[in-house]
Design a protein around this nucleic acid. Structure first.
Length: 342
DNA sequence: AATCCACAGGAATGATAGGGGC
DNA sequence: GCCCCTATCATTCCTGTGGATT
């Protein structure tokens, strides 16, 4: 029933991108100078999650590499923990300059020097989720090196600009912007059916079912494909000839909880306790949370630290903060469960 | 209107862990 | 084993904000 599992995987870059011609052309034109060996501007790609930012960035760079021999590309996901050191390290690793670098005992400056001295091919560096960088100076580091072309991918450009220093902001504002929106349901449907054509046998899933996936995913292509993948693998495992509606709705909830679980697993015990307090007590004020927290643990951390936990968890989309100042309250992110119809 | 209070989050600092060089 | 490096986490101090209190 599964013909080609690759096309359903997260991170698969298709041969043809649906409904993103303008954005693809725009980004291509920014990177075009590279094919003549010239430096290219920094590009910023913004849009909500699952809008195809990562996909078109990789698609464009791959196509560029088909056209010109001497272009390298490296993809870095800055999501979580990506410090300046690790980012630089990974870039160097990808271009093969880490042979004699020791993971834990090399100064930053040494890494920068390596990059500066790099005299190999022009390289496209895709910084995915760049707004998640702990230390945005990496962008600055790269920006000033002509042999690297940078694509910064971010959900929200203000989040990114708010965290880089002023020198860079003005330069980034001047750089090329590719803005993307959520997919409409029909577009999502087209994307899904293209994947189904390559990935699944015939008649495994109906058009109506694809529409209901598109609807549940609310414009998020990554989520939509995730749902399709999970449902397909259930059907495959149970040796069912086709995907049932029940598998689909299970897959939809699974896809959501999976994302949440991943974030949850990365919490420290103390953070987890704070999370559970909010889960059990519903909307709580920061002081309420802290008092409860002090009750529950042996060696409580400071208030400031708990505040850091709270803002971290909101960033991970586990919590939402409502209200400002004194009436601020924290709640768990309400599970969005869009119903198939309506 | 002035003041107070709870809160958010930046910056600097310190403690601790772990890898490599010697 | 000691020294040097970085990472990571917590703490302390501090500034800014906005609603509440007087």
């Amino acid at each position: 029933m599964i013909r080609d599992a690759r096309v359903l995987r997260a991170g698969f870059v298709p041969q043809e991108v649906e409904h993103r011609d303008a954005e693809v052309n725009h980004l291509s034109s920014v990177l075009r100078p590279l094919t003549d060996g010239d430096p290219a501007e920094t590009a910023i790609v913004t849009g909500p999650s699952g809008a195809g930012k990562t996909c078109i960035s990789q698609f464009v760079t791959e196509r560029l590499r088909e056209e010109a021999l001497d272009i390298e590309a490296t993809y870095i996901n800055c999501w979580r923990n990506y410090t300046r050191f690790r980012t630089l390290y990974q870039i160097l690793d990808d271009i093969g300059r880490t042979i004699d670098i020791h993971r834990q005992s090399t100064p930053h400056d040494e890494l920068i020097d390596r990059l500066q001295q790099y005299d190999g091919n022009r390289t496209v560096v895709i910084l995915d989720e760049a707004d998640q960088l702990e230390d945005t100076s990496v962008i600055y580091d790269l920006h000033s090196l002509p042999q690297f072309a940078v694509i910064c991918i971010t959900n929200n450009e203000e989040d990114l600009f708010g965290r880089v220093d002023d020198r860079l902001v003005s330069r980034l504002r001047a750089s090329e912007h590719v803005r993307m929106d959520k997919y409409a349901d029909e577009q999502l449907f087209d994307i899904l059916s293209a994947r189904v054509r390559c990935g699944l046998e015939e008649d495994v899933i109906t058009d109506e079912q694809l529409y209901s996936i598109a609807d549940a995913a609310a414009g998020d292509a990554r989520l939509a494909i995730g749902i399709l993948r999970t449902a397909a693998s259930t059907a495959d495992r149970e040796a069912h000839g086709r995907i049932t509606d029940e598998m689909l709705s299970d897959a939809a909830t699974a896809a959501r909880t999976q994302i949440r679980q991943k974030s949850l697993d990365s919490l420290t015990p103390h953070q987890r306790i704070v999370y559970d307090i909010i889960k059990d007590d519903g909307p709580v004020s920061p002081t309420g949370i802290y008092e409860e927290y002090v009750e529950e643990v042996e060696d409580p951390r400071t208030k400031r630290t708990v505040r850091t936990y709270l803002s971290k968890m909101s960033q991970y989309n586990l919590l939402v903060a409502e209200g400002t100042s004194r009436d601020r309250q924290y709640t768990l992110v309400t599970e969005a469960t869009p119903s198939p119809t309506t």
